[in-house]
C-alpha cells in the first residue's frame, strides 16, 4: 500500500526560485530536525544491531552464522520466500489485470479485501491458520488422519507468510496498470493478438519495473515476518525455525551477541532490499515519465 505511492517517490528534486524558497534558517532547522530524527530513530537501531552482533568479535560473529541451527533457519527462510513470493506474484498479476483493465461492481470491496492482511495484526494472521488446520480446528482432524502436516511444519509457515505478504504485488500493480489504461492492449487485440501475446508483449514490458518493485517488498516482508510465523511454527530447533525466530531463540538463551549477529544478517538483507528498491524506483519513474509525456494526460 505504501508501495503503490512510494513508487513515484525517491530523490525527486525541484529547481527553486527565490519566491518559492524558505529563509535559510527555516531550511537549516527543518533539515536538522529531519537528520536528528533520522539518526535517533533509524540509524541508531541499525547501528545497534551491528554493534551488538560484533560485541564478542568477528570470530563469534561468524560462528553464529555457521551454527547448524542458524543454517537450517537461513535455508528455511529462503525456502519459504521462494514458495510464497511467486505465488503472490501470480496472484498479483491476475488480480491487477482483472481490477485495472475491467470495470465491475464491488471493485472497492475487492481491493479492500486484498488490502486486509496488511492491517491484520500478525498475531491474528497466525491464529487463523491454527483455527483452520490445528488438531482442534476445522480441517485439522482430516489432515491428521491422512498424515498431512500443515501447522508446526513448513506448509503452515508458508501459508502464514503468504497471508502477510498477500497485498504487496497486487497493490503495486493495480495503480500502475490503471494509470497506463488499456488502449495499447485493445489495439493489440484489434490487430489479432491472442490473450497471452497481449500480456507477454504489451502489458508485461510496461509493468515490469513495478512488478519487480512489488516482488522486492513482498520478499522483504516474507523473510522478516515474525509474529504470524511464530504462532504456527512450533519452534522445533533445526526444523521449523525461520531466521527471525532463531534470533528470538538465541536471545532467550542469553546468547545476545549471536542473536544480534543473525539479526544483522536480516538487516543486511533489508539494506540490500532497500538498495534494489531505490534502483527499481529510478527505472519505474523513468517508465512513468515515458507514459505520461506522450499520452498528454
Amino acid at each position: 500500500m505504501s508501495a503503490s505511492i512510494a513508487l513515484h517517490a525517491g530523490s525527486l528534486e525541484r529547481q527553486e526560485t527565490a519566491s518559492t524558497r524558505e529563509p535559510a534558517w527555516v531550511r537549516v532547522v527543518l533539515v536538522s530536525v529531519a537528520l536528528t530524527f533520522f539518526s535517533v530513530f533509524l540509524l541508531l537501531p541499525l547501528g545497534t544491531v551491528f554493534a551488538e552482533g560484533l560485541r564478542k568479535g568477528w570470530g563469534a560473529y561468524f560462528d553464529a552464522m555457521v551454527n547448524p541451527d542458524a543454517w537450517s533457519a537461513i535455508k528455511l527462510t529462503l525456502l519459504v520466500a521462494v514458495i510464497a513470493v511467486p505465488l503472490n506474484l501470480v496472484f498479483g498479476l491476475a488480480a491487477s489485470w482483472a481490477i485495472a483493465k475491467f470495470e465491475f461492481r464491488g471493485k472497492r470491496v475487492l481491493i479492500t479485501l486484498i488490502d486486509l492482511p496488511f492491517s491484520v495484526s500478525p498475531v491474528i494472521s497466525g491464529l487463523i491458520y491454527v483455527l483452520m488446520f490445528g488438531a482442534q480446528g476445522w480441517f485439522g482432524p482430516w489432515f491428521y488422519e491422512h498424515d498431512i502436516k500443515i501447522i508446526f511444519a513448513v506448509p503452515g509457515i508458508v501459508l502464514a507468510t503468504i497471508f502477510v505478504t498477500f497485498p504487496f504485488v497486487a497493490r503495486e500493480l493495480i495503480p500502475l496498470m490503471e494509470a497506463q489504461g488499456s488502449e495499447e492492449e485493445e489495439a493489440a487485440v484489434v490487430l489479432g493478438a491472442s490473450g497471452w501475446q497481449v500480456f507477454r508483449y504489451t502489458t508485461l514490458p510496461n509493468i515490469k519495473w513495478g512488478l519487480l518493485y512489488g516482488v522486492i517488498l513482498c520478499n522483504a516482508r516474507a523473510m522478516g515476518e515474525f509474529g504470524a510465523v511464530s504462532v504456527v511454527s512450533g519452534h522445533i530447533r533445526g526444523q521449523t525455525n525461520t531466521m527471525p525466530l532463531h534470533v528470538e531463540i538465541l536471545y532467550n538463551e542469553y546468547n545476545y551477541a549471536a542473536a544480534f549477529a543473525v539479526a544483522s544478517l536480516l538487516a543486511v538483507l533489508a539494506i540490500i532490499t532497500l538498495g534494489l528498491k531505490t534502483l527499481v524506483e529510478r527505472q519505474t519513474r523513468r517508465q512513468l515519465q515515458d507514459i505520461d509525456t506522450p499520452s498528454g494526460e
Partner: peptide, 17 residues
C-alpha cells in the same frame, strides 16, 4: 528434537497438533 517456549504456549501447540 527440542522445542522451547512459554509453558502455556507449548501446551497449546500440543493441543493444536
Amino acid at each position: 528434537n527440542a522445542s522451547h517456549g512459554g509453558s502455556g504456549k507449548q501446551a497449546r501447540s500440543v493441543i493444536d497438533g
